[in-house]
């Protein structure tokens, strides 16, 4: 009996320590990211992803870092390398979590990055993909504020390009704000970003 207790307590302790290591690692990665140490943060997310297995979140954030980085990079070789890397991370994430709206939103952003970087080359092939991913994400999670906000952002961009009024999508932003308020993630490190972009996107509504 005692031995059983000992073994049991041993297991609890080791799982507890691995959980602690995960939380510590993720915390450290977010800290690095917050301090603009993007590549170090992405590296750490990759390490956590590799060590954890079965967990999509580290890969998801590693991908996000690379995608966001391309928006203020000019070097074509770097952009393409980062986007390929980000796609690989998302592919990993998808194997651990199928039909995940958050991953679809991230993949939509990845495809948007291609269009932003070279519209003539990627506009035709990737625009449809962006639209499809946002729609799928919204079907899975109708109240996901990121899906609603970034889809509206994308549609406003298209409307401006076509000389239409982007204001048509302003009610969507209001909806997104509402769902941001309601959002209460239960899993630690679950995505909850995006609220700080509301003001930028709302510029179109003035």
């Amino acid at each position: 009996m005692k031995t059983i207790i000992i073994i049991l307590s041993f297991f609890t302790i080791t799982t507890a320590t691995s959980q602690a290591a995960y939380e510590k690692g993720m915390g450290k990665a977010f800290e690095l990211w917050g301090n603009q140490k993007n590549d170090e943060a992405a590296n750490l997310f990759e390490r956590i992803g590799k060590a954890e297995k079965e967990n999509w979140l580290p890969y998801y954030y590693a991908a996000q870092i690379h995608i966001v980085k391309t928006f203020n990079t000019k070097d074509a070789e770097e952009i393409e390398s980062r986007l390929v890397k980000a796609q690989n991370y998302l592919n990993e994430a998808k194997t651990f979590s199928k039909d995940n709206a958050e991953i679809m939103i991230m993949e939509a952003m990845l495809n948007t990055a291609y269009v932003v970087y070279d519209g003539a080359k990627y506009g035709m092939t990737h625009s449809g993909k962006v639209e499809e991913l946002y729609q799928k994400a919204k079907t899975l999670e109708p109240e996901n504020p990121r899906a609603i906000l970034y889809h509206a952002d994308w549609q406003m961009g298209a409307a401006k390009f076509w000389g239409k009024d982007p204001k048509a999508f302003c009610p969507e932003i209001e909806k997104a704000i509402l769902y941001f308020e309601k959002e209460s993630p239960t899993t630690p490190f679950y995505p909850d970003w995006g609220k700080d972009q509301v003001a930028r996107i709302q510029q179109n509504c003035k």
């Binding site: 290591a21 690692g25 590549d39 170090e40 992405a42 590296n43 750490l44 990759e46 390490r47 956590i48 590799k50 060590a51």
Partner: peptide, 15 residues
Amino acid sequence: PGANIYLEGTYDGAS
């Protein structure tokens, strides 16, 4: 600089 170095399957690593 910035390469990711780690032991596979562990948290141990550095940039």
